[in-house]
Design a protein around this nucleic acid. Structure first.
Lengths: 356, 356
DNA sequence: CACATGTTGTAGACCGATCTACAAGAGGGC
DNA sequence: GCCCTCTTGTAGATCGGTCTACAACATGTG
């Protein structure tokens, strides 16, 4: 159990009185600062224990550090994000820093409010994930407080970044599908393909890699992307329409696992199986390994990314001034949702042949 | 985009100077306090806008409110918890309160550290989920700061509670399984069954309800509980052993969806299907609805619970002093992971008959 | 008109830490 | 023995808000 029921009203003053020293002395002890004799440290520590003293983070924040790291996260329903959080939690667990998470309220502007809320609370550093936050805005922020951004590919920022090599990951998927023999491969993405803040975002990179892989395979004329907003149900709906078309694709590569689950759902809805329509995702969320799902996907090593982000942040807090950009290499995880394409009979087949 | 890149260095003093009023006046305006003329409010608001002023939460915390609500959560990998968070986020989204989440570090004591961290940060109220936190400790805490606990059945606490009617939910599952014709129903639980802090915890209530339902059905001698720590892989391992026994059960009722997924996994591993071994869970996490899983489970209405908890907390912050205990009624969601038991041949069958 | 009442704004103490500047004492070197 | 440096501890300013007490002024009342 915790040391004692939290009283909340013991101040540094009380500790100083109890130990017979000055406030400044107590302050030094709790900050592990220079200039404390072992004897004094012992007396102060004892007084702290005895009184159950806990320093007020608010008061600390007025002058010094809060020993708090803020983690902004765009949504919680997507199981990929908790992976990042777990990595960060682990990296911070034996540091003096406490992690607090601010979820971006979907009802408000993407991420700004949550990040601001963290900064308002004087966190010593910020890890942010929301992909659509303006890099320029983050740059300005990074001048004030250490910032690590996860998942943006910008390399000229003032903030550190941790990204997966999304191009490599998407190419892994495409090579796998092409090797299986697929030619009609549709890419499902939330991405509009327009430039702007969105460029540099993972799904934009994956989209570009998909196009590139198709071109390289001589399938430039079969490039087809379908847009679907995030979320399993949305992807399911869109995929259902797609599968109802006479010349439906033989494989769907979704930019994330969540929509990939939606596609699998739609495949089942349509009375089909991955033997007819292969499905690949991206993220390797835990459920992807379940035999009922068995989704071929790309392991981004989210936990490692979260850990890395936290480590970079601690370095920054400790004083590093050069910007660092870390890239994590993803791995393909082949499961049974991708299989060789099966020749289809009738009109669809003829049309496909005619088009070649 | 957000109003402007965060400067961070504009204080209430600057705003006061800009608007030509006192600090106290600005303070009143930003707190929406009594005694402000419309004219002054306009001038101050304008100055705030112009300078991009944001009040320091640290400074506020030294005397007044921080407009922050803390949410302690035991783990993030279990998708049920994000549901709670989403409900709370929604309930707070048009309040002046910001939600921050403190994850319990699995490496440290269950929940205490995270809750303390929130209190240290002077949150205006705490929502806590970690089931194993000592109620007495929470009671002491509740004397200092408003506390709402989710998922404990204690009714004599000083803190408010929001719980699902776990007994009713478990009975729904059991009635369903019994109606299907199952008699050999094993309950999979992380619960030790010992008294102490653990009593009053959801899985303890569900376990008790399982026992009760078996007794009532005249199956008291077939009561069998199997312990497995939280997590899909652990449950899978335990279930695999269970299924290898000659007189394996015809149905497994897991205390949560995550272990239920593990059981389904094990069923597949063993070359079986839910036609041989039915599986039921509890929580109705999103993936349960997927056709590849199709898990019969109990919808706890996690989002509603999170919303309710936030609402109770806001009431407390607003001044309510009587304790409230809210119970949410769960609903059974029948899917295809539960089916009527199929008669088995040979030894297992005979043994079952002999035992009756 | 004198006086109570209500409204609007201000001055200044206060919250609980950190941080800077400095004093007192202990050793060390010449 | 004297000066210099290093160590240890303290006093007091400071951070940026909120809160209390009160002043100034307008308004209503007998």
């Amino acid at each position: 159990m915790a040391s004692r029921p939290p009283t909340g009203s013991v101040t540094i003053e009380d500790v100083a009185r109890e130990a017979g020293v000055s406030r400044a002395a107590v302050s030094k002890v709790i900050r592990n600062a220079y200039g404390v004799s072992p004897a004094m440290k012992a007396r102060v520590t004892e007084a702290i224990e005895k009184l159950g003293y806990r320093p007020s983070v608010s008061a600390r924040g007025m002058r010094g550090a809060t020993f708090t790291v803020g983690f902004e996260i765009p949504e919680l329903s997507n199981p990929f994000f908790p992976k990042l959080l777990e990595g960060a939690t682990a990296a911070l667990s034996d540091s003096p820093y406490q992690l607090i998470i601010a979820p971006a309220d979907p009802a408000h502007a993407e991420g700004y409010r949550a990040i601001q809320a963290l900064v308002d609370r004087k966190v010593d550093g910020v890890i942010a994930v929301s992909p659509m936050v303006d890099p320029a805005w983050l740059d300005a922020l990074a001048a004030t407080v250490p910032v690590v951004m996860i998942g943006r590919h910008d390399r000229l920022s003032a903030y550190d970044t941790v990204v997966s090599d999304d191009a490599a990951g998407a190419h892994l998927v495409m090579r796998h599908l092409l090797d299986l023999g697929h030619r009609d491969i549709v890419h499902l993405t939330p991405e509009s393909g327009l430039a702007g803040v969105g460029s540099g975002v993972p799904q934009a990179i994956r989209l570009a890699a998909y196009r590139e892989a198709m071109q390289e395979a001589g399938l430039g004329d079969r490039i087809r992307t379908v847009r679907a907003p995030n979320g399993e149900p949305e992807a399911r709906r869109v995929a259902l329409q797609l599968l109802a078309e006479p010349d439906r694709p033989t494989a769907v590569f979704a930019s994330h696992d969540e929509p990939a689950l939606g596609v699998l759902h739609a495949v089942a809805d349509a009375g089909l199986t991955p033997a007819e329509v292969s499905v690949a995702g991206y993220d390797d969320i835990q459920i992807a390994a379940h035999p009922g799902i068995s989704l071929t996907t790309v392991d981004q090593h989210g936990e490692a990314m979260g850990r890395l982000a936290a480590e970079l942040l601690l370095e920054r807090i400790a004083g590093r001034s050069e910007t660092r950009h870390e890239v994590v290499r993803p791995d393909l995880v082949v499961r049974t949702s991708t299989r060789p394409p099966r020749p289809r009979g009738g009109a669809a087949r003829l049309r496909a042949v005619g088009r070649t």
